[in-house]
Amino acid sequence: MRQRKLKVAIIGLTSCEGCEFALLDTGAEFLDFLKQVDLAEFRLLEEEFDDNTFYDICFIEGSPITKENVKILKDARAKSKYLIALGNCAAMGGVHEIKNYHDKKKIKEYVYGQKSAIANPDIKEIDNIVKVDYKISGCPINAKEFYKVVYALMRDERVNIPQRPICYECQARGYECILQRGEPCLGPIILGGCEAICLKSKMACQGCRGLFEDAQVKTMMKKLIKEHGQEKMNRIIEIFGLRDDIEEKL
């Protein structure tokens, strides 16, 4: 039996913080979790925290946009046993990554004018900068996956994220297959674990959880592009930072 409570940190870089709120929204379940760990850092709940030299499990949410973000990310990796990307921004780039695929200079000038010295780097997933042990993607995350991963780590168990497409969960719940009625749904190549929540509201999957291992990307994209056109499909896969992952596999 473990003697000490594990030190857990949840650190946000640049983001909407939705994934952090997704945890807070689980209410009593989150408080229960907090009782079992030594919460070393979570700015939503505490503004003051010990300057810890070590984290057992560190969750990183958000995109590393500013120099400060990158420094925090690297420091966190240096002092963490496990570093986990929490949410689409950290794991896949987030909606922020859209600008990577377009003229980012023009985009910045549209918002701030030409004179501004706003930092405008290409958006990176955090595993472009540091080694990442696990990814919990989603926009926002499904909080259940957070608990699954963190409790497995706390019990020294293997973290098991089944490599199955959304379709598995969608069909199990009896949701209508909107791919079959002509909608550009990415479900068949996207990692399940979100309980097909978008499909529950009859919204086509836009891939915020990323590709699963062995997804048949070429075949699927060929079919979707044939039906909907390259431009439209590009726009869809840009929204949640999926486009670079798909282009890699084509």
Binding site: T14, S63, I65, T66, N69, V95, H96, I98, K99, H102, K104, K106, I107, K108, Y110, V111, Y112, S116, I118, A119, N120, R235
Partner: peptide, 16 residues
């Protein structure tokens, strides 16, 4: 606050 800017308005231009 502007330094961590995500340029959301800029990214909407040209999108449906």
């Amino acid at each position: 606050t502007q330094e961590g800017s995500r340029l959301i308005e800029g990214m909407l231009i040209g999108r449906h």
